[in-house]
Amino acid sequence: MSDSPDAIREDIEKTRRDLGLDVDALADKVTPSKIVDRQVGRMKGAVTSVRERIMGAADDSGSALRDTGSSAVAGVSDAGRQAVAKAQGNPLAVGLMAFGAGLLIASLVPASEKEKSAASAVKDQAQPLLDEAAGAAREMGEHLKEPAQEAVAAVKDTAAEAASHVKEDATGAAGNVTDRARDAGQQVQGG
């Protein structure tokens, strides 16, 4: 590296240009609208690819769409490709995916009056069963209350007994330490 002021200025200007390009690229990468555009492109490509793999290639009139979709597939993540590869040639997987998509769409659509009335009727018919189940749960809870109380008492007794043993052992150990300390003190004085 040169120590001349002109060389240092040129180096600083080059670093500024490079830094400016990096900042512009980073800003482009984290701009929300650009992120959305990239994600939309990836999803379109993935959907097109999945449709083509599962349902077969489109006819010749759709070749332009297929070309556009296959170029967008290059940006699809590995997870998407693995899912498509597993689904290819597997009608059960295709059916499950279609069922899931239908379930999602159905959950977004508001319930009709017929569906609401049917749900109300089912709820009314199920109420006696719910009441019976609640009664059985209460009865079971009452039957389990006494054994649970006995178990708690047994645990308390065991803990008290263990604490007593620990206290006795600690007292004995303290006596032993005291005796040994006294003997050691006598040996030091006598020795």
Rank of each mutant, 00 (worst) to 15 (best):
M1A: 12
S2A: 04
D6A: 15
I8M: 11
R16E: 04
R17V: 11
D18R: 10
L19Q: 13
D22I: 07
D22H: 10
D24Y: 05
K29I: 03
P32C: 08
G41V: 05
M43W: 11
G45A: 04
G45V: 00
E52N: 09
R53F: 03
I54A: 01
A64T: 08
L65V: 03
G69P: 00
S70D: 13
A72I: 01
A74T: 11
A79T: 12
A83Y: 00
V84W: 00
A85M: 11
Q88S: 13
L92W: 02
G100R: 12
I105R: 13
A106Y: 09
S107Y: 08
S112L: 07
S112M: 10
K114I: 07
K116Y: 01
S117L: 15
S120V: 06
A121I: 07
V122W: 08
K123M: 09
Q127G: 03
L130R: 06
A134G: 02
A136K: 15
E142I: 01
H143T: 02
L144Y: 00
P147R: 02
D157R: 14
D157H: 10
A160W: 03
A163K: 12
S164L: 12
K167Y: 03
A170W: 09
A173G: 01
A174W: 01
D179R: 12
R182Y: 08
A184C: 06
G191E: 04
